[in-house]
């Protein structure tokens, strides 16, 4: 099983270095590739939010909405702590 883990580590490292190795062959990055790369963080991170959110309940929705609004005016840490506080309070009160 150790060898399967190490093989998994190798292929994971390949995904982490592969994008760079392939892309560095371009002399100039085509505009559409550039646009695609700029969209990567929001695109991928959204997939880690949407499905869990859809399968959550009112407390999670409230925490997410308020945290999302806080994010419009404040930094990431403030936003995160606000969301966490609402989540904790909501679950405590509704438990």
């Amino acid at each position: 099983m150790t060898w399967v883990i190490l093989a998994g580590a190798v292929v994971t490292y390949l995904t982490r270095i592969g994008g760079h190795l392939v892309l560095s062959r371009f002399d100039e990055i085509p505009p559409r590739v550039e646009a695609a790369l700029n969209a990567v963080p929001a695109a991928v991170l959204t997939t880690l939010v949407a499905p869990p959110l859809l399968h959550a309940g009112p407390v999670e929705w409230a925490a997410t909405i308020v945290a999302g609004l806080v994010a419009l005016r404040a930094g990431l840490m403030t936003m995160f702590l606000t969301g966490a506080a609402i989540l904790l309070a909501g679950r405590f009160l509704l438990a």
Binding site: A42, L45, V49, T64
Partner: peptide, 8 residues
């Protein structure tokens, strides 16, 4: 998910 939303 809340943290990732902040990043988004």
């Amino acid at each position: 998910p809340i943290y990732f939303l902040g990043l988004v």
